[in-house]
């Protein structure tokens, strides 16, 4: 049985923030930014098997149009300064996923003289994904968590605290 031309005419109602968040969480473009072995898993996550495209995610080659930066790998102090610059170049609203032990806390290389122990020392992190490196499934779960976070944001709807102000 065909469903074509069978649905009644209808309108959906939703809150404006929910609608905005739904559009935004469904097209999170992440920056092509790989630091170490985690980047290999990130590429794998973007590939056909894990397939980030089904969440509307696509890699972008510039921070200027990216919504998300996935810090995938060991962050050296030299790179930390550059990462901060890249983050500052991204337009708001922007999100950060810290992928793997090294980006979370320095991981295996925590005691090395050249390593920044955790990307949260430089830029604010939304989601931490544990693992060394995390499998594509783990990163996918982290990104789904990020979508959940985006869906709960409030932008236009008046909040009680803002109404009193």
């Amino acid at each position: 049985m065909s469903l074509i031309n069978t649905a009644p005419e209808m309108a959906l109602t939703t809150k404006v923030d929910d609608f905005l968040n739904w559009t935004r969480k469904s097209s999170v473009w992440y920056m092509m930014f790989g630091l170490a072995c985690c980047a290999i898993e990130m590429m794998q996550t973007g590939g056909p098997r894990a397939d980030l495209d089904r969440f509307g995610m696509a890699p972008r080659a510039t921070p200027r149009v990216s919504d998300l930066i996935i810090v995938s790998g060991t962050l050296t102090l030299k790179m930390a300064l550059r990462t901060k610059v890249l983050y500052d170049q991204m337009p708001d609203p922007k999100y950060v996923v810290s992928m793997g032990s090294c980006a979370n806390c320095g991981g295996l290389f925590q005691l090395a003289y050249s390593v920044c122990d955790g990307v949260d020392k430089v830029i604010p992190v939304d989601v931490y994904v544990p693992g060394c490196p995390p499998r594509p499934e783990a990163l996918t779960e982290g990104l789904v968590k990020l979508q959940e976070k985006i869906q709960q944001e409030r932008w236009l709807v008046r909040t009680p605290s803002a109404a009193n102000a």
């Binding site: 102090l77 930390a80 300064l81 806390c105 320095g106 925590q110 003289y113 122990d117 955790g118 020392k121």
Partner: peptide
Amino acid sequence: YHGISTSR
């Protein structure tokens, strides 16, 4: 280093 502490 540039305001980033090197210990955790």
